[in-house]
Simulated scan of single mutants.
Amino acid sequence: MAVTLDPKLLDVLACPSEDHAPLRTGTPDDPEADALTCTECGRVFRVEDGVPVLLLDEATGPAAG
């Protein structure tokens, strides 16, 4: 199931890392995943019940360490 967020909300959400880059829906492997991916660092943040979990400690992906 794809993430369904208000487009206005998606416009203002940004990665919580230092670069504060925009987020896009899905993951690199699955554009329909319930997640948001940073366009700069590649971290993936899950979306639970329509609420993005934008915590660096909970992120997965290339820059998650």
Rank of each mutant, 00 (worst) to 15 (best):
M1A: 10
M1F: 09
M1L: 14
M1H: 06
A2Y: 00
V3K: 10
V3D: 10
T4L: 13
T4K: 14
L5H: 14
D6V: 03
P7C: 06
P7Q: 09
P7G: 11
P7Y: 06
K8D: 15
K8I: 14
L9A: 07
L9N: 01
L9W: 08
L9H: 05
L10Y: 02
L10G: 01
D11W: 01
D11H: 03
V12M: 13
V12S: 14
A14N: 12
C15A: 07
C15R: 02
C15L: 10
C15P: 02
C15K: 04
P16M: 05
P16V: 13
S17F: 15
E18L: 07
E18R: 08
E18G: 08
H20Q: 14
H20E: 15
H20F: 14
H20K: 13
A21H: 12
A21D: 09
P22Y: 06
L23Y: 00
L23F: 05
T25V: 14
T25F: 05
T25G: 03
G26F: 06
G26H: 06
G26C: 11
T27A: 00
T27F: 01
P28S: 01
P28Y: 02
P28T: 01
P28I: 01
P28K: 01
P28C: 00
D29T: 09
D29N: 04
D30A: 06
D30I: 11
D30L: 05
P31K: 06
P31Y: 05
P31R: 03
P31F: 04
E32M: 01
D34K: 12
D34N: 13
A35E: 12
A35K: 12
A35I: 15
L36P: 00
L36N: 00
T37I: 08
T37K: 00
C38N: 11
C38A: 07
C38V: 06
T39K: 08
T39H: 07
T39V: 10
T39F: 10
E40D: 09
E40F: 02
C41N: 12
G42Q: 03
G42V: 00
G42W: 02
R43C: 10
V44H: 01
F45I: 09
F45T: 08
F45L: 01
F45E: 07
F45V: 08
F45Q: 05
F45K: 07
R46N: 10
V47W: 01
V47A: 01
V47T: 10
V47M: 11
E48I: 15
E48G: 04
E48Q: 10
D49Q: 15
D49C: 04
D49I: 14
G50P: 11
G50K: 07
G50D: 11
G50R: 11
V51Y: 06
V51C: 09
V51S: 06
P52A: 03
P52F: 00
P52D: 07
P52R: 00
V53H: 14
V53G: 03
L54H: 08
L55G: 13
L56R: 04
L56E: 10
D57W: 13
D57M: 13
D57V: 13
D57H: 08
E58P: 00
A59S: 15
A59Q: 12
A59V: 13
P62L: 00
P62R: 00
P62G: 01
A63H: 00
A63R: 02
A63F: 02
A63V: 02
A64S: 15
A64M: 11
G65L: 09
